[in-house]
Nucleic acid binder design. Sequence first.
DNA 1: CTATATTCTAATATCAATATACGATATAGA
DNA 2: TCTATATCGTATATTGATATTAGAATATAG
Lengths: 152, 152
Amino acid sequence: MQFLSLGTQYTLTALITLSKEGTGVAVSASKLAEPLNSPSTYLSQMLTNLIEPGIIGTRRGINGGVYLARDAKEVSLYDIVTAVEGDTFFQTCFLGISGCGDIEPCPFHDEWGKKRGKIEDWLKSTSLEELANDTSTMLTDGLLQFERKAKR
Amino acid sequence: MQFLSLGTQYTLTALITLSKEGTGVAVSASKLAEPLNSPSTYLSQMLTNLIEPGIIGTRRGINGGVYLARDAKEVSLYDIVTAVEGDTFFQTCFLGISGCGDIEPCPFHDEWGKKRGKIEDWLKSTSLEELANDTSTMLTDGLLQFERKAKR
DNA sequence: CTATATTCTAATATCAATATACGATATAGA
DNA sequence: TCTATATCGTATATTGATATTAGAATATAG
Ligand code: FES
Ligand code: FES
């Protein structure tokens, strides 16, 4: 049980790096993937999810790559996460019963709803810019050690 | 992306039913599975996870089944969930970086840690008894409609 | 002692996540 | 303009986790 899938984790980390470069500056998927120890084509594939929602743009050919399409301030964590994984987490019942709402709530609905709402609020109110400005050195120091499954 | 797997959802619902019967009263897996619209052998398999932690006991043969081994007051939601799914959710980094702690935290560590801690606290402080006493009618009215994947 | 209800274990099927491979396309430079 | 190459984009393969089914083991009732 994990909150974000590996693909989403790659995506998120790459976007933080990207936003440090600034809006509009293109970086190739392979450059972005390198420090992540992730297959570059896989990252590329994941990033594709962000084109349609207008979070990133891409440019092919030499010196092409992926660039941030909006100001980092205007991109929320929620935008990113749901672009890749969808929003079922925020829509479905804790118990998995079809229809989650106040009309016929399960015994978990009230409390779980609060907790889930807090997470949703947090994701919505946190921008990419804030993450990029974080003082954490983990992302810049090459300490990234994702736990992959496939061969290394 | 879903918090609990289907198996855990079955397990949890079955346990609530079981605790309404009272500690020590055996109910067969097929009886428990019926209203869930779940394969009884699958539920049975899932429930096996709860034997070793001492949450349930089983009795084979005629009139056998599964019974609650402790008082429902003494079984927390956390016990149940982690018995089936393990506790990786509460141990691993939001970004999936190996080692989640205060020493080399990722940019999400503080905020996510709070949210995750709230969930953990809730699960630990909520007992099976409270759930069974919940006024929700969903579980008793045969309105259970899990969203299964395989053939019906 | 035997028939049967039941758990328990192990094999299989299904599905989603992850990874790879290949094709399409734009750009730089000649 | 043309060509080579860097790059994205999409389609396919692999893997692993989850869910399901099948059958063996076992205890109980009568
Ligand atoms: S009805 Fe179960 S969480 Fe909303
Ligand atoms: S280090 Fe990332 S959540 Fe703790």
